[in-house]
Nucleic acid binder design. Structure first.
Lengths: 336, 336
DNA sequence: ATGAAAGCGCTAACAG
DNA sequence: CTGTTAGCGCTTTCAT
């Protein structure tokens, strides 16, 4: 392995100069910079990550904790993870992948060993058991999702309360007076995962203001469950004309079920989904939807972390991205 | 931060003894081991990962390169990644997540800086441009997928050739004489991703031996494309009674399209899928399928890497996992 | 079965 | 603008 002394010798400078050229932490004359860079390239020099981490107290790695459980659409996780990796690379950082099942111990391990400089935690629940550990950590962390008590923490998420309201208001604005929400599986609400609860809350509150009658139907992520829920809905509330779907996995199945029962979208039923734009565009008919901005969340999470690392000081904050509703073919004005 | 000297002092031993207790690299009396472990716990000691990597020339991290492109079912990637992380943890290793778009440079970076001890590369193509770099790397690597020239490399994959044959033989054994393959998007075949090409090859070869007439229909991963392909198939080859689907994303759509055209599965059409067992079980009707063993591939990949790291010597090999076909409700004996 | 001490390769004062 | 040097915290010979 070629090391910094080799490069220094080859370029006729001091090792520290090579280090400074590489880190840009002090001004170097264009001459020597070039000479050093040439040596770096010809020798194929790669600084040793461990040595660097030891000397600088920075590993240039961030941890990403991904959920494994149900209720979160896998493609959204992947999209988020990809966005985190890509953005981290623009800051010269790498990403260590952790699964949620390591829990608190995993966080303490990677932070305690200085394996990572910072942590991103996906899918944080309202009463997440990792919150105390996260607060006690000596490294910056950003949570995707907002716990009930976010004090001392940095959180970011889509504003699901506003998203619920936006969906309802869109339907109400189109004249719909009876609207149903087809949502996540019951266990997601029980577990108190913030996003499902918040969306339902915003949905209900807006309904109250608009004097729209609403009902909620949790739904497991299977075709059979989707079909059953649609049948139950149509039997129990035959006068419902608007539906909000907050469960990416079953969107297609719900649409098929409506078609099967002879309900045309949007002629008989208007549908709004909360899902990635890509999915909304591919559906037939294309879906009016509130986007799940996985890319933006990932990018923002990384940027906030890098900001904290650069400043060296921690400021608690929670950022809620405003929902963006895009009108497509699945919603229409209620006639008659 | 508490360091090894603190632990040593607290336990009344030398730092090296603490190190040996933790690594188990030499025999320690039960007495001192316990004393040291108690000190470790009471002080909350976590060895510094960078220092460790520098001194031992081992980072205890493996890189996982995941694909971003189309043609690979996202849930399978996640399942594989999860399995890799979980298995790596049992060997006290962590996983660094890389995306394919960093290409050769990414491999050289993480290997060159000693950030990782070993590398797992998913979705390797027949003529993958990373092969030379992978061969030249001074660290063990295992490829998921088998390139045309696998010399000097360690590869592992499902035996897709055998899988193609198994699917065809199952249908042929049930009396089907005309069988179609609905496969991956055309670009996957053009790109020469091994698995699609191999499956098709095994399928065709078995058909030749069995004197079954076969045809192949590439298919984009959208509902519209699936519907179009089914219509085309039924128009062009009305006498086809058996179908193999090798494209996880469209399985549901294909089944719906058949139903829509009045073709009952399995009464009119027998269907075999290549997909994760979980997906096959959830489909209605449940699908006779050859499993994509993402878990097992992930576990095996990690184990092979750990083996090489332990032995310190590289042996090239390619492991093909035998396909396992599970009969479910979607295939039946051809009658009439 | 345990200690002592020499690095591992780099960064960041400090010095000029 | 550049060089000198003292560590960063651990592992691992070499000793005993």
């Amino acid at each position: 392995m070629v090391k910094i002394d080799d490069v220094a010798r080859h370029a006729g400078v001091a090792p520290s100069t090579v280090s400074y050229v590489l880190s840009g932490k002090r001004t170097i004359s264009e001459q020597t910079r070039e000479r050093v860079m040439r040596s770096v390239r010809t020798l194929g020099y790669h600084p040793h990550a461990g040595a660097r981490a030891l000397a600088s107290n920075r590993s240039n790695v961030v941890a990403l904790v991904v959920p494994l459980r149900s209720g979160i659409h896998v493609p959204v996780i992947m999209q988020f993870a990809t966005s985190v990796v890509t953005e981290a690379r623009t800051f010269d950082h790498d990403v260590l992948l952790l699964t949620q099942d390591e829990g608190v111990a995993g966080l303490q391990r990677v932070a305690g060993t200085s394996l990572v400089d910072a942590i991103i935690v996906m899918d944080v629940e309202l009463h997440d058991n990792r919150l105390p550990a996260l607060r006690a950590l000596k490294r910056p962390a950003v949570l995707i999702g907002v716990p009930e008590d976010a004090s001392g923490l940095t959180c970011i998420d889509l504003d699901f309360t506003a998203a619920g309201a936006v969906c309802l208001n869109h339907l109400a604005g189109n004249g719909h007076r009876r609207v149903a929400l087809i949502g996540s599986p019951p266990e997601v609400y029980k577990r108190e995962t913030g996003f499902a609860t918040r969306l339902l809350g915003g949905f209900r509150q807006a309904a109250g203001q608009r004097r729209v009658k609403v009902s909620a139907y949790p739904c497991e992520p299977t075709e059979a469950a989707a079909k059953a829920v649609v049948e139950k809905l149509m039997a129990e509330r035959p006068r419902v004309t608007g539906v909000v779907i907050h469960n990416e996995s079953i969107i297609g199945h719900v649409l098929n079920a409506f078609a099967h029962k002879g309900a045309q979208v949007p002629d008989d039923i208007s549908v709004v989904a909360i899902c990635p734009d890509e999915q909304a565009e591919q559906a037939r008919p294309s879906l009016t939807s509130v986007a799940i901005p996985a890319d933006e969340l990932g990018r923002s999470a990384v940027r906030m972390l890098m900001g904290e690392l650069a400043r060296g000081e921690h400021v608690s904050s929670t950022t809620l991205l405003p929902p963006k509703l895009t009108e497509r073919q699945s919603t229409a004005m209620l006639v008659g």
